Structures are given as C-alpha cells and as structure tokens.
Deep mutational scan, measured.
Amino acid sequence: ELREAFAKVDTDGNGYISFNELNDLFKAACLPLPGYRVREITENLMATGDLDQDGRISFDEFIKIFHGLKSTDVAKTFRKAINK
C-alpha cells in the first residue's frame, strides 16, 4: 500500500519525490486550501521528511513521514491528496 502511494506521488518514476511532485499532488487533489498553504505544507513535509537533505524524498524517508504523521492535519491532507 505504501509503495503504491509512493509511486502515485513519484510521477516521473525516478524513485524519489521532489518538492514539485508533492506540490503538484496537493494542487491536483483540489483541496480547499489557498496556494500559499499548499506551499507551506509541501515545505514542511520536505523539511521534516528529507532526512539526508538531498532535496528529494526516498521511499525509506516516505515511510518515516507517513508513519510519523498519524493524526495531524498535514497527514489528513496528505492522505486525501494521495487517495484522489
């Protein structure tokens, strides 16, 4: 299930999730959020999830993000976006 969610976000299939891919995910989900809020959520996920600070999120980092977000608003938003 997590591998499928990761693949859905990794639209270019390079094995990593970029800032733009995350941002595009939230935009495509048509969530009722202003653009600046989408950017804040994306920046927050990148800042906390990109553990090796290479500017992208690997599958291992994605798993840690996903499990670390349990019930936060960001987690709910992220799950809604993935499930669209």
Rank of each mutant, 00 (worst) to 15 (best):
E1V: 02
E1W: 10
E1C: 06
L2N: 04
R3E: 09
R3V: 09
R3L: 06
E4K: 12
E4T: 04
A5T: 01
A5S: 02
F6N: 00
K8V: 04
K8D: 04
K8M: 05
K8I: 02
V9T: 03
D10F: 03
D10R: 01
D10C: 02
D10I: 02
D10G: 01
T11L: 07
T11D: 02
D12C: 07
D12P: 01
D12W: 02
G13L: 02
G13P: 01
N14S: 09
N14F: 02
N14Q: 05
G15A: 01
G15M: 00
G15S: 01
Y16W: 09
Y16H: 06
Y16V: 03
I17K: 00
I17T: 01
I17H: 00
S18P: 05
S18Q: 15
F19S: 05
F19N: 03
F19H: 04
N20V: 05
E21C: 04
E21N: 05
E21P: 00
E21R: 12
L22C: 02
L22H: 00
L22P: 00
L22D: 00
N23I: 12
D24W: 01
D24H: 07
D24K: 10
L25Y: 04
L25P: 00
L25D: 00
F26R: 00
F26G: 00
F26P: 00
K27M: 04
K27N: 07
K27S: 06
A28T: 07
A28N: 07
A29P: 02
A29E: 07
L31W: 07
L31Y: 10
P32G: 07
P32E: 14
L33I: 12
L33F: 14
L33E: 11
L33V: 14
L33W: 13
L33N: 11
L33S: 05
P34L: 03
P34D: 14
P34I: 01
P34G: 05
G35H: 12
G35A: 15
G35I: 04
G35Q: 13
Y36L: 10
Y36A: 14
R37W: 06
V38T: 05
R39A: 10
R39N: 07
R39M: 05
R39V: 05
E40K: 06
I41Q: 03
I41M: 07
I41K: 02
T42L: 11
T42E: 08
T42C: 15
T42I: 15
T42G: 05
E43W: 03
N44R: 10
N44A: 13
L45Y: 12
L45E: 03
M46F: 10
M46K: 14
A47D: 09
A47Y: 04
A47K: 14
A47M: 11
A47R: 12
T48R: 13
G49E: 07
G49P: 05
G49R: 10
G49Q: 10
D50H: 06
L51R: 07
L51C: 07
L51S: 10
D52L: 07
Q53N: 12
Q53R: 08
Q53Y: 06
D54P: 13
D54E: 12
D54M: 08
D54G: 10
D54Y: 06
D54T: 11
G55Q: 09
G55A: 07
G55W: 03
R56I: 04
R56A: 07
I57Q: 00
I57M: 03
I57H: 00
I57P: 00
I57C: 02
S58R: 04
S58I: 00
F59G: 01
F59H: 02
F59P: 02
D60G: 07
D60N: 10
D60C: 04
D60F: 02
F62V: 12
F62I: 11
F62N: 00
F62Y: 01
I63Q: 14
I63R: 11
I63G: 03
I63D: 06
K64S: 06
K64T: 06
K64R: 10
I65D: 01
I65K: 03
I65W: 03
F66S: 03
F66T: 07
H67K: 13
G68S: 15
G68E: 15
L69E: 12
L69Q: 10
K70Y: 08
K70F: 15
K70S: 09
K70N: 09
K70H: 09
K70E: 11
S71D: 13
S71Q: 13
T72S: 11
T72W: 06
T72H: 11
T72K: 13
T72M: 11
T72I: 08
T72P: 12
D73C: 09
D73Y: 09
D73W: 06
V74C: 13
V74R: 12
V74P: 14
V74I: 10
A75N: 12
A75G: 14
A75H: 13
A75V: 10
K76T: 14
K76R: 12
K76Q: 13
T77Y: 06
T77W: 07
T77A: 11
T77P: 14
F78I: 12
K80V: 09
A81T: 14
N83K: 10
N83F: 08
N83W: 04
N83E: 14
K84D: 15
